[in-house]
Amino acid sequence: MEKLTINREKCKGCGLCVSVCPKKILRLSEDGFNSKGYRAVEVTDIDKCISCAMCATICPDVVIRVERAER
């Protein structure tokens, strides 16, 4: 399982998650749209994700599910 599960079909491409990600690993898709016609969010480097859930906290559309590896 990935740390971030992104439901791209729910994404409206508002970019709020991109603006708050401390690791700058989110961006709006540059090659295509989801079925709603939005440029959905995507992860550029999941290895850098710290599971802080800031993206999910500010997302108005519950697009992102966050998990963290057990220590």
Binding site: K12, R65, V66, R68
Partner: peptide
């Protein structure tokens, strides 16, 4: 893996009509 964040149960699993970025 443990879940840090997911959709609350009291929210229906439907798309809202709100504009992108609406709080």
């Amino acid at each position: 893996m443990s879940v840090i964040f997911e959709k609350p149960k009291a929210l229906c699993d439907v798309d809202t009509h709100y504009c992108p970025g609406c709080t």
